[in-house]
């Protein structure tokens, strides 16, 4: 029996590295606890997404004045500038996570999780590719603490791990020439099997995610398609068994430019 406190520390990513493996091994053997752990992680994501818009709301005038007054003793000249920065759109992109989640939670609960725990979490119905990708984008791209499971510093390990889990070689295309650097990747459950999500970020912190599925055995190839899910723009296409979706909140033309580049890189791979 695993110590309950350790399971929570695992959920909150504050378990010492040395114990993570033990907990993961335990969870692999105990699907009920694995489902519980996943549900707790989902709760945290949900809470952060649902309440994120509050961070973006302008602070009511009376509270703002009060906080300025409280802080003014030490640094009067800085308060005005900071009051201004609070109203800047620093948090607006967080808000969209809530919007998308609210609209689609029914579909989310089943697949919003790690594929390690798939046995415990089955998906009842197929969610269309662009929607899966958009929700995964909305949920994980605002995450400050742990947007990815494996970071770009360990790209080789990331590629190996995801390829193994997806049962076919997958690798993130390099988008540095377009101004987007790889942040890392994570594994998610798709409709029937694991899917990979790669995250990119530009110099301003704008994030894009590339969602890769390998469960399209019966689908024909498609040309580029565009979908809009809430605030998230998605370009997606199917190539053999692979389905790709590039999601972001940047404008359609800019996203199209990146999507075209991704498409070309992937197309020209041996």
């Amino acid at each position: 029996m695993m110590n309950e406190a350790e399971l929570h520390a695992y959920v909150d990513d504050c378990l010492p590295q040395a114990r993570r493996g033990d907990v993961e091994a335990y969870l692999a053997e105990h699907p009920e606890d694995a489902a519980r752990v996943q549900a707790y992680r989902d709760q945290s994501e949900l809470l952060r997404a649902a309440f994120a818009p509050l961070l973006d709301e302008p602070v009511p005038e009376h509270l703002r004045r009060l906080s300025e007054q409280s802080g003014a003793v030490v640094t009067p000249d800085r308060s005005a500038r900071h009051a201004e920065s609070l109203r800047s759109p620093r948090w607006t992109w967080l808000a969209l996570a809530a919007g998308v989640l609210v609209a689609m939670l029914g579909g989310v609960a089943g697949w919003l999780g790690h594929a390690h725990f798939q046995n415990a979490y089955r998906v009842a119905q197929a969610v269309p590719l662009p929607r899966q990708a958009a929700v995964a984008h909305a949920v994980f791209s605002p995450d400050v603490r742990r947007p990815v499971e494996v970071t770009a510093e360990q790209e080789e390990q990331l590629v190996k791990w995801l390829s193994k889990r997806l049962g076919t070689p997958v690798a993130p295309p390099k988008l540095g020439s377009l101004g987007y650097e790889l942040v890392g990747g994570r594994l998610l459950p798709g409709n029937a099997g694991p899917v990979a999500q790669f995250m990119y970020q530009d110099g301003a912190g704008q994030r894009l995610t590339l969602y890769v599925t390998t469960e399209n055995a019966r689908n024909r190839d498609t040309a580029f398609r565009f979908a809009r899910e809430g605030e998230v723009n998605v370009f997606y296409w199917i190539d053999g068994k692979f389905g790709y979706a590039l999601s972001g909140t940047i404008g359609k033309p800019e996203l199209a430019r990146v999507a075209t580049a991704v498409y070309e890189v992937l197309e020209n791979r041996p």
Partner: peptide
């Protein structure tokens, strides 16, 4: 108190209070 730190904490305080 540092005004900047306080201003930065405000939205978090409000969020927590609202959820609570």
């Amino acid at each position: 108190m540092d005004a900047a730190a306080l201003q930065e904490t405000m939205p978090r305080l409000r969020r927590y209070a609202r959820a609570l």
